[in-house]
């Protein structure tokens, strides 16, 4: 399977992302919590650049022991990237569409070779 160079690890620091294009492949590569993830940069909704928007932690309800709504907070662990066109949110670690996890972006294998990052296409 051919590999496409993404970046030197040092040039894609924690919390950042890079969009690469190779032929018909338009791919978003994320560096998050020490891992690299790569997905097709094509929203399942209307074809927007899904990987180019905000990276936001999942919003969560805080429900009290008596089932009352206490408030909202951002998740400490789950993080999503958001299609900038309409707000479709994707789980950064799985590529699943958060409101319907049966939908997911095409995932690419990320290869670390020395100081370099590649994706297999």
């Amino acid at each position: 399977m051919p590999e496409v160079f993404v970046a030197k690890i040092a040039d894609l620091p924690e919390g950042e992302r890079k969009i690469i294009q190779s032929g018909a492949h338009d791919i978003g590569v994320f560096h998050w919590d020490g891992q690299f993830y790569a997905y097709a940069n094509m929203c399942l909704h209307q074809g927007g650049p899904a990987c180019e928007g905000l990276i936001m932690h999942q919003v969560e309800d805080v429900i009290g022991p008596d089932k009352t709504w206490v408030g909202q907070k951002f998740s400490d662990s789950q993080v999503n990237f958001v299609c900038p066109w309409h707000g479709y949110e994707y789980d950064l670690k799985t590529g699943e569409c958060v409101p319907d996890r049966s939908l997911r972006l095409k995932k690419y294998k990320v290869v670390r070779r020395g100081d370099d990052i590649y994706v297999a296409i």
Binding site: G15, M42, G47, G48, P49, L54, I55, M56, H57, V59, F74, D76, V79, P84
Partner: peptide, 24 residues
């Protein structure tokens, strides 16, 4: 600087509607 979740920020220098709609 755009304020994000958990007190992070994202710095963006430019915006062009045409580029943002490249997929369109």
């Amino acid at each position: 600087d755009l304020p994000l979740s958990n007190d992070r920020t994202w710095s963006v220098d430019e915006f062009d509607s045409g580029k943002a709609l490249a997929h369109a």
